[in-house]
């Protein structure tokens, strides 16, 4: 049974990582038409250093992902604290709206945000992209943090106020530290969703602020450039390094 479990999990991981392996493999392929394997080469990494626009687009994507995740995290956490701590008029409506946002198909959200930005006559670009990504990350953070808060012992907060802590002190020293794992999970999830997004980005950004998916889609009309594989491989290597570094630090920390 254990062998079966392990092989099933390995199979799914294989499925998830096979396309990544393809990217890495083809990034070292000398053939311009990336299907057939010709010979090992570093050409695409070399041309990556000369083609700045692709790297710029990747940096833009990372920037938006970091900012959107952070803003969504701050606002979502405060919102979750509000929903957890207080009873107020319109609380159910707010929760309903959060649920709707969480469940909205990307395409519906993309369309509606585009209509909003055009109606407000906002120039499509960095700001519209950031606002949109923050919006679709927001409910994920709020729900993650709220579900963690709901698992707590409420007496902890009562104890804090009995000991003379004000509302802010109780939140700052009791609620936030307890919610911290969920806040971090919410940030990570938002960061991931933002980096991975194609649909919303397509609708709400303009030519003067290009992010990776748009850049690639515009390049593809001239055939998929192997530089994309090289860039993806580099980013993938960095992610793996970050993850293993974090893992190493966590393991080293005395339990």
């Amino acid at each position: 049974m254990d062998k079966l479990k392990t092989s099933y999990m390995a199979l799914i991981f294989g499925f998830l990582y096979l396309p990544m392996a393809v990217l890495v493999l083809y990034s070292f392929n000398s053939s311009k038409y990336s299907i057939r394997w010709e010979a090992f080469s570093l050409d695409w990494y070399r041309s990556l250093t000369t083609d700045a626009t692709l790297v710029d687009a990747a940096m833009n994507s990372l920037l938006v992902a970091c900012l959107a995740a952070s803003v969504a995290c701050a606002m979502g956490t405060l919102g979750a604290v509000g929903l957890y701590r207080y009873r107020f008029k319109g609380r159910n409506a707010l929760q309903g709206l959060l649920f709707v946002t969480l469940m909205s198909p990307d395409i519906v959200m993309a369309v509606s945000l585009l209509v909003l930005f055009i109606a407000l006559q906002l120039q499509l670009g960095f700001w519209t992209l950031l606002l949109s990504h923050t919006t679709f990350c927001l409910p994920f953070v709020t729900v993650t943090v709220l579900s963690r808060l709901q698992g707590f012992d409420k007496h902890l907060i009562e104890a804090a106020s009995d000991l003379g802590a004000g509302e802010w002190q109780a939140i700052r020293h009791i609620v936030l530290p307890l919610a911290m794992p969920a806040i971090m999970a919410g940030w990570l999830l938002s960061f991931t969703l933002s980096l991975d997004d194609v649909v919303v980005s397509f609708f709400v950004t303009g030519p003067e602020f290009e992010v990776l998916p748009l850049k690639i889609f515009s390049m593809v009309r001239l055939g998929v450039k192997p530089e994309v594989n090289a860039l993806a491989t580099l980013l993938f290597a960095v992610s793996l390094a970050v993850v293993s570094g974090a893992q190493y630090l966590l393991q080293r920390k005395p339990q």
Binding site: L23, L188, T192, L195, D196, D197, V198, L235, F236, S239
Partner: peptide
């Protein structure tokens, strides 16, 4: 989650 940090269009 890690594969998700590579944009889904690339994948």
């Amino acid at each position: 989650i890690v594969p998700f940090w590579t944009n889904s269009l690339i994948r």
